[in-house]
Simulated assay, not measured.
Amino acid sequence: MTTNATSTAPGTRLRLDPTKCSGHGLCAELLGEHIALDEWGYPIIAERDIPAPLLADARRAVTDCPALALRLEGAARR
């Protein structure tokens, strides 16, 4: 079975709790393909499923967030 580099993890999205976020920007460093920073350094999360090759990076962004403001939602949370 071959994998498609552009395949996604169906239904898996990154969510942000803006009340917890303090704008460290670490998430954008770890997952820049999916997270941009606004002019004040707060994350803007792409509203699309996370591509399968980026799931490990997404999990790391969630676990390394200093404010615990990120979570994975959907099928590949584990």
Rank of each mutant, 00 (worst) to 15 (best):
E73W: 11
A75I: 14
W40H: 12
T3S: 11
P66N: 13
P51Y: 01
L72V: 07
E29N: 12
A75P: 05
S7K: 04
P10C: 09
P51F: 04
C65W: 02
A58L: 03
E39I: 02
P10S: 15
L68V: 01
C21L: 05
A61R: 00
R48F: 01
A75D: 15
A75K: 08
L70K: 02
D64Q: 15
P66R: 08
N4V: 10
A56P: 00
C21M: 12
P66V: 07
T8I: 15
P51I: 03
R77S: 12
P18R: 13
L26M: 09
L70R: 02
I35W: 02
T63W: 07
I50H: 09
H34A: 01
R59L: 07
H34Q: 10
G74E: 08
T12W: 10
E29W: 06
C27P: 01
H34L: 11
A76P: 01
M1P: 05
E73K: 10
L72I: 09
D64S: 14
T8H: 14
A36K: 10
T2H: 03
C27Q: 01
K20G: 05
R59I: 06
G74V: 10
D17V: 11
I45S: 00
E47I: 03
T19I: 03
E33H: 03
D17M: 04
A76L: 13
G32A: 08
V62R: 00
